[in-house]
Amino acid sequence: MARTRPTRWKRRLIVGVATAALVGVGGPYVYINYIQDDPPAALSLDSPPARPESTSGSGSGSDGQAREGVEGAWRVGSGSQAGYRVDEVLFGQNVTAVGRTEEVTGKLEIEGTRAVGGSFTVDLASVKSDSDQRDGQFRGRIMNTERYPNAVFELTEPVDFGSVPDVNEQVTGEATGDLTIHGETSSVTFDLTAQRTADGFRVNGSIPVTFADHGIDAPNFGGIAVEDEGTVEFLLAFGPA
């Protein structure tokens, strides 16, 4: 018995479904791999300042002169930035999402070769990525920045850098403290790198974050699946308080 050929409308339906499937799979692949810009590199001491570092105000002493030595009180000044980095699957394609802000404040107290106290605060509502849609989800259902506007890290143990660096020299240490995000606090330990400048110093680090530790559900919605962990990146420029 001869097979009947599909009617015209059935053929069109099959072609339409196949085309939609191709666009649904191929479209994100083409955009992510050929159109979308690569994510910015991780923050490091080689990163240029977010904006030129000030030589007055928070970046210098009250008399505008650079301070001798490193002991005493310091505060976060211009040229600082912080944000998040997290891996996600976007319509079947692996991507790295990065959001940053320059709205960072903080302080540090140094005695000898040790940072004996300090904290920094990030204004989460000002964090921006390369996607307005992602930013809206970040501020809304993910972080609820109206209720929890800030992320805060506070040292709970001194950081010993081992020596007082010369200008432009880098030193490393290990920091332990409390990280508060989304109203939940967890203890974290991570590596720090500091570099002395002519009138202060810069500090760089990356703090691992497990979303569940802060009462945050892994953000999975609309073809986007986000890993259960991410990092808080920061590059802080300190000047005399």
Rank of each mutant, 00 (worst) to 15 (best):
S119I: 05
A73S: 08
R100A: 08
G79V: 07
N144R: 08
L235F: 04
I35G: 09
G173K: 00
G24V: 09
Q93S: 12
S62I: 09
G239N: 04
L235I: 13
A2S: 12
A218T: 11
V23S: 09
V167K: 11
F91N: 02
D37I: 03
V70Q: 05
G16W: 00
R3M: 13
T193V: 14
Q137I: 06
S187Q: 11
G24W: 08
T172C: 08
D217Y: 02
G79W: 07
L192D: 05
L124M: 14
T189K: 02
G57N: 03
S54E: 09
G223T: 07
Y84R: 11
T172F: 07
E111K: 14
A237M: 05
N150P: 06
V98N: 04
G118V: 03
D123P: 10
A237K: 02
E53M: 13
T4P: 03
E154D: 10
N33W: 06
T156C: 10
S62T: 15
K128V: 10
I224S: 06
L13C: 13
I224G: 07
R134L: 06
L90N: 10
G27Q: 11
D191W: 10
V89S: 08
Q137S: 09
N94M: 01
L22Q: 03
T172V: 12
E103M: 04
L192N: 00
A20N: 04
Q65A: 13
A198M: 04
D228Y: 01
N33G: 08
G118N: 07
S44D: 03
A212S: 14
I224R: 02
L45I: 15
R85C: 01
Q195D: 02
Q65L: 12
K128C: 11
H182R: 15
F234K: 05
S47E: 11
F161E: 01
V159R: 02
S80K: 06
A194C: 05
F161A: 06
P52F: 12
G215D: 01
D123V: 15
P219R: 04
L192K: 07
G57L: 15
I216C: 10
F201N: 01
T7R: 12
G77L: 04
T19M: 11
D213G: 00
L236S: 11
S56L: 15
D130S: 14
T55R: 09
E111P: 12
D213N: 05
G117Q: 14
Q93P: 11
T176A: 00
L90V: 13
V159D: 00
V159F: 10
T193A: 15
